[in-house]
Design a protein around this nucleic acid. Structure first.
Length: 425
RNA sequence: GGGGGCAUGCUAGAGCGGUCAAAUAGGGCAGACUGUAAAUCUGUUGGCUAUGCCUACGGUGGUUCGAAUCCAUCUGCCCCCA
């Protein structure tokens, strides 16, 4: 079998490494503890985080030990990397809540058996990966000791070369001292993980390269050991947009924020040019199969998109949800039976419908329009449908006459559906 | 500590006393075309009980018949000097 490093490389996960040969040899010869940091700024990860997650999963499948770090301590400061504004500082409670959500999501992809802030000695022997919060060691740091032991290894001249900082300095955006320290803290994380868990490899987005290298250097200076770094290419879609953004905002891994159906639809709707790359990143399908799918052209490429959507949804939400999403998607767009489809649904009492609901109000209420004015526009422009019939009259009142099998199917534009079910009372 | 500048809609960015719900671009939404793709074209893009009304140009208070536009003050950000 190929070395995991080769697997990752073939799938496009590798952008930069400290030393490709050494990393490959390390991964081929021993069981390596590796880590990736995640931001606890929200209670859910979004599809952008899937690149590191999938890379971790490949490594774990190859027998290496993942360590997922929640940047609880660093988030309390804010990360300047490639951001035009400071990140908000979060409270400990928020971070802890967010961490729980993130852990649950990571566990779908990885075997991480310990909980938050739980780094008992017994678990060091555990085969599963770990989930740690860097607040555990950062919060107790003593400023003077930190400066003496860690700070002395850093040169400001070098630090400000980092791209993220450079931008902030050049563009008059300003850089707070807090944020400037981020690099030291992240480097310190690596050192701690090396000392405690023999972590020898850090992975991260390519924008983190500078920070990761700072950690590699720090370990070398303090411990005299060679540790490694691998970065992932920063994913953008073929049209140049940041990965994982859609009309409605980010595509989350949390089913509460982005339903499995919407998640599935996100993948179905990717740009043709992104399909093979995404298959390599976001599924475990063998590369031969991916190449076959990637060679499909014109309409046939939808088959590849369907595979991508199904596989990605299955990983994130499980087989049952993926099946449902697929069925719903096929129903909505392939002429299948729409009533069977799983889609956002609102229950309305028959009483209300007897009176009649103005169409603008209805579209707004179920969320297909952001306001009544928005609904008005939608209707006027011919984007509103009830039971697949276009409705252009803004003064239309929806009542029981329109019911089909005790339900209504609303549609806004081409892709957004909403079902209304009537409840007797 | 001293001096100067900036703050506008989702974003960037015009406007500098009335004709401003505010140019322009990007983004979003809708329509046409299509393959639930891309590109292109068209329309639209604060809210509402809708030919009108309300809320908006960092906060507050003034000047004025009338302010995003002028003045004062507060807050935040930036630059230069020390």
């Amino acid at each position: 079998m190929d070395n995991v490093f080769e697997v990752l490389n073939e799938r496009g996960f590798i952008k930069q490494t400290t030393n490709a040969e050494q990393v490959a040899r390390l991964l081929g010869e021993e069981q390596v503890a590796y880590y990736v940091g995640f931001d606890p700024t929200a209670s859910s990860l979004h599809v952008g985080s899937l690149v590191p997650i999938m890379a971790m999963a490949h490594l774990q499948r190859a027998g290496h030990k993942p360590i997922a770090i929640i940047g609880g301590g660093t988030t309390m400061i804010g990360d300047p990397t490639d951001k035009t504004e400071m990140r908000p500082m979060l409270s400990l409670e928020q971070i802890s809540t967010n961490s729980k959500g993130i852990l649950a999501q990571l566990q779908r992809y990885l075997n991480l058996d310990n909980g938050i802030a739980n780094n008992e000695e017994s678990q060091i022997a555990s085969k599963a990966g770990r989930f740690l919060n860097n607040a555990d060691w950062l919060l107790s740091v003593n400023y003077i000791e930190f400066l003496r032991d860690i700070g002395k290894h850093f040169r400001v001249n070098e630090m400000i070369q980092a791209k993220g900082y450079q931008q902030r300095l050049d563009r008059e955006l300003g850089l707070s001292f807090l944020e400037f320290n981020y690099q030291l803290l992240q480097a310190y994380d690596y050192l701690c993980l090396f000392q405690k868990y023999a972590c020898r490899l850090q992975l991260g987005g390519d924008d983190q390269w500078g920070n990761i290298l700072a950690g590699v250097d720090l370990v070398r200076r303090v411990e005299g050991e060679r540790v490694h770094a691998v970065t992932f290419p920063l994913l953008t879609t073929a049209s140049g947009a940041k990965m994982g953004k859609t009309a409605g905002g980010a595509v989350w891994l949390d089913a509460e924020r982005t339903s499995p159906y919407e998640f599935y639809q996100y993948w179905i709707n990717v740009d043709d040019r992104d399909v093979s790359r995404f298959l390599a990143y976001f599924t475990f399908l063998p590369m031969d199969e991916i190449r076959r799918l990637g060679n499909l052209e014109d309409e046939a490429i939808r088959e590849a998109k369907e595979v991508l959507a199904y596989q990605a949804t299955k990983l994130a939400h499980g087989k049952a949800e993926a099946d449902k999403a697929q069925a719903a998607s096929r129903a909505a767009f392939g002429g299948g039976n729409l009533d069977e489809a799983e889609m956002p649904t609102t229950v309305i009492t028959s009483e209300r419908l007897d009176i009649g609901i103005p169409i603008m109000m209805l579209f707004h209420e179920v969320g297909l329009a952001n306001s009544r004015s928005d609904a008005r526009r939608l209707i006027q422009q011919g984007g509103a449908y009830i039971n697949e019939k276009q409705c252009r009259a803004i003064d239309m009142v929806v009542d029981t006459d329109l019911l089909e099998e005790n339900a209504l199917l609303l549609r806004a534009g081409k892709k957004r559906y909403h079902r209304i079910i009537i409840k007797e009372n």
